[in-house]
Write a protein that binds this DNA or RNA. Structure first.
Lengths: 129, 129
DNA sequence: TGACATCAACGAAAAACTTCGTATGATTGC
DNA sequence: GCAATCATACGAAGTTTTTCGTTGATGTCA
């Protein structure tokens, strides 16, 4: 009963996770500087969010230095998969295939990207045999 | 300044929209009965949510009858596209292609589904020429 | 017509999310 | 050593989300 599965990150939390994935383990200052390039969020806001995310188990904190160092507890891809599964469940009747097809048909994809997807399909088809 | 773009529906709102898309225009009672098959939400909870959704512009209300009739203001696919674009933006650095590839590689897809996706790719490739 | 059912509206409360001010303690530079 | 700086922690306020109870109006039917 100790570690149940991680909660879905909120928008703000996801923005922070993005920085942590990009930069690796970071201090509050690091994250704040990165996020403040365009928007404007106070330092203590980021701090508070990271504290809450620590409680939730979304990040882990290293307190050995004065400036605590945070890192994402779950990898970027794992989180992405989680979010996709969640969205498929909530908005696509649980069908990931429907999700993929909707995503594909609703925007312009250039030839290179289409090829990359095609190759991925080939790989998957090989596996499913 | 009148109609800005619709807000992202919350989880509960999305559940209600799901019913409206499936059933078409419905009363609060209709939605409530549909959603209460498994979970347990009170009648007035659904009512309140639909009132809020009306304010937000997610649904439109026909008040000619005593039991108001609600319908989704935006189609299912349009909403799905919106949600996908939003998720791509928030979690995939704005790349819908990354989203698709992650969705494809993170689960088992049967042969028929893979073929359907392949055909879709063919169609898209034709268009992009 | 009078009791009962049905419905919308309103308000309120609890939880989650977002934001930040202030307090307080550690570190650093002069 | 002391002031300025940098860091965490705490609490609080405002907003959104979710939930429902109550009220009052309208309709039904025996």
């Amino acid at each position: 009963m100790s570690d149940r599965q991680p909660p879905r990150p909120t928008d703000s939390e996801l923005a922070i996770l993005g920085v942590l994935w990009e930069r690796g383990p970071s201090t509050v200052r690091d994250v704040h500087e990165q996020l403040n390039k365009d928007g404007s969020t106070g330092y203590t806001t980021i701090l508070k969010l990271l504290q809450i995310m620590t409680e939730k188990g979304l990040v882990v904190r290293d307190e050995t230095e004065r400036a605590h160092v945070y890192q994402s507890r779950y990898g970027e891809q794992k989180t992405q998969r989680q979010l996709l599964a969640d969205l498929a469940e909530r908005a696509f009747g649980g069908s990931a295939t429907k999700l993929v097809m909707q995503a594909l048909s609703s925007r312009k994809t250039n030839a290179a990207e289409l090829n990359a997807i095609r190759e991925l399909l080939d790989t998957l088809e090989g596996e499913s045999r």
